[in-house]
């Protein structure tokens, strides 16, 4: 055996952990090699020195001090030791593989599953079966009635859609009025209620000014003109405080001016004014009859004159080729 190999093994040799064969080989080498024998001697001396080191003992108050720390630190003796799997992982693992605490018998579990299945079939699958079932002739009438009901519902839905689209007109005047009118025509051909169309109009502030200027001084007119630029925002936001000032100045005479313009419009489209109610309060109502094909044009013209607060085209009464309308005129305040 070579010296380098023996020197590597000397540490194990001195600790007596070499197997017998290696031990014998090392011993044989040591008998003939002074260098390795010296190395062994120095290793023994080293160990003697190391072993002679004093055993340093813990201070006398070690346990007392430790107990104080344990009391102060609110010990948690339930924690896992810091070897092996981490406690958090172990806890998670135990939770995942933990058997259910509530034990269910197979019979009960089966019954529960069946119940759920039945509920599922009744509540979820049943309606689609009803649609696909072949209808016997005796029940045909009932089904037809049901279908008619559905059609009526569909129409109601469309009407609701109309309401929504109309409300957009009020908000920003951005939806073309003609579009809304086309829908109204469709509805009018299917619904035969004889209720007049009710239009609620807000008189535009500039129209008020126009009307007002005919009877007021220039000074007041200037004040009103200043407010025109703000009108759109004021109306859209529903804050009508500015416009209210103008509206308050509006007298009966002015309302008559606007009302007479509406009456003229109705007549220009070939319609008849049935009645005009002038009120001391804010609302003035004009009832009129107008050819159905002129209705949309009338609305456009009214839109120029005023703002729609409530177009309400949901129910349109028809009598032959004419429509009955009722226009409520409200000053914009």
């Amino acid at each position: 055996m070579e010296c380098i190999k023996v020197k590597e093994l000397l540490s194990e040799y001195i600790d007596n952990v070499l197997d017998e064969q290696l031990k014998k080989s090392v011993e044989e080498h040591l008998l003939t090699c002074n260098s390795c024998a010296e190395e062994l001697a120095s290793l023994k001396t080293y160990l003697e020195k190391i072993n002679s080191l004093e055993k340093i003992e813990a201070p006398v108050n070690f346990i007392k001090s430790l107990n104080e720390k344990l009391e102060n630190e609110n010990p948690k003796p339930q924690e896992q030791p810091n070897f092996g799997p981490k406690p958090e992982f172990k806890d998670t693992k135990q939770k995942v593989f933990m058997p259910f605490k509530i034990k269910l018998s197979f019979k009960f579990a089966g019954a529960l599953a069946m119940l759920l299945l039945v509920v599922y079939i009744v509540k979820v699958i049943q309606p689609s079966e009803e649609m696909t079932t072949v209808i016997p002739s005796s029940q045909e009438k009932i089904v037809t009635e049901k279908l008619m009901d559905k059609e009526a519902k569909q129409l109601a839905l469309e009407k609701r859609e109309e309401d929504l689209s109309s409300s957009e007109i009020i908000k920003g005047n951005q939806v073309p009025l003609s579009l809304a009118m086309e829908k109204e025509k469709t509805i009018s051909s299917t619904v035969s209620a004889a209720k007049p169309i009710e239009l609620v109009l807000l008189i535009k502030p500039d129209m008020q000014v126009r009307a007002y200027s005919s009877v007021r001084t220039t000074n007041l007119q200037m004040k009103s003109v200043d407010l025109i630029g703000k009108d759109k925002d004021v109306l859209e936001s529903g804050k009508l405080r500015e416009a209210e000032n103008i509206g308050a100045m509006m007298d009966e005479k002015n309302s008559v001016v606007i009302s007479s313009e509406i009456e003229n419009l109705v007549r220009s489209f070939g319609g008849n004014v049935l009645s005009v109610k002038y009120s001391q309060t804010e609302t003035h109502v004009i009832s009129a009859e107008i050819p159905k094909d002129k209705y949309s044009n009338l609305l456009k013209s009214l839109n120029e004159l005023s703002q729609f607060q409530k177009p309400s085209p949901s129910v349109i009464g028809t009598e032959g080729d004419s429509l009955k309308i009722r226009v409520k005129l409200i000053p914009s305040k």
Binding site: L70, P77, Q80, N82
Partner: peptide, 11 residues
Amino acid sequence: FIKVYRSLNGF
């Protein structure tokens, strides 16, 4: 020893 004390119940 503090660590040992805390962990000993799980040993």
